[in-house]
Nucleic acid binder design. Sequence first.
DNA 1: TCCTCCTATAACGTTAACGTCAACGTTAGA
DNA 2: TCTAACGTTGACGTTAACGTTATAGGAGGA
Lengths: 141, 141
Amino acid sequence: MEERYKIDEVAKQCGLTKRTIRYYEELGLITPPERTEGGTRLYTRLHIERLKQIINARDVLGFSLQEITDFVALREQLAQSGDAYRQAEEVELKRSKLLEAGQMIDQQLRMIDHKLEKMKEFRKEIERLRKRVTEGLEKLQ
Amino acid sequence: MEERYKIDEVAKQCGLTKRTIRYYEELGLITPPERTEGGTRLYTRLHIERLKQIINARDVLGFSLQEITDFVALREQLAQSGDAYRQAEEVELKRSKLLEAGQMIDQQLRMIDHKLEKMKEFRKEIERLRKRVTEGLEKLQ
DNA sequence: TCCTCCTATAACGTTAACGTCAACGTTAGA
DNA sequence: TCTAACGTTGACGTTAACGTTATAGGAGGA
């Protein structure tokens, strides 16, 4: 396997423009893909999955690209810290990093729960509106 | 009762700036408040409630101000159409308006449900991250 | 009445998130 | 090999959603 995709293919699969994809790379939201000798970008499935996640965070959660950047950085921190704590001094450092990451994650969780609740409230509001419309239509006939 | 608030008070209660409040009025997101003889805006509780709803739609649902404007217009349509269908010709008009409104509302409902689902997915993703952090901390001690 | 703080309008400035255009090199098929 | 279609890098343009500044006039307490 190990299939590679050029930027136009990726754009169509994700519903983004080519410009946007390059822009996201520029911001560090996705890792720079391989290139051909001529400079053409060659993306993998992972890139596409990542882009779809970003679109989700952007559209559904309303995150700014800056917030997503921070989040991506956090994930990378965690990915890196999986290994390499051979030295005793590093242990304390790693612990504090993990604690900090935990704080941030908990904060994100609280924020998401808050959004979920507000969104459910909003849904009920909309349902009330629909009920009024339905009743209005019934009255008409 | 019928208490009135000046713009700075409203700004503090809503967590907005005065500029933003005037801007939202300019866009038609809130009805223009009464004025004193000198021109000072005097807001009611209703204005404040409305502003809080707008903030919710903006921050939680990620709606653009344009989308909120449309939504506000829809609500007003429905509020108006509660009465006044004395003439026979108006009945058909009202029916079509109600049908159109119903379409839009259903669309909104589907969109919200979609967002709710995606948000829950995202929440699980974050929880997985937290689990990894917790496990990492346990391994350290 | 005066003085200080608040408010109003108008107009220009700013930032994020891309769009668009130009100028040029790359790919790949006939 | 040639060429049409696609890709690359700047660089400037655009829009939404306000911020900021300037200028001028109201509110209200001593």
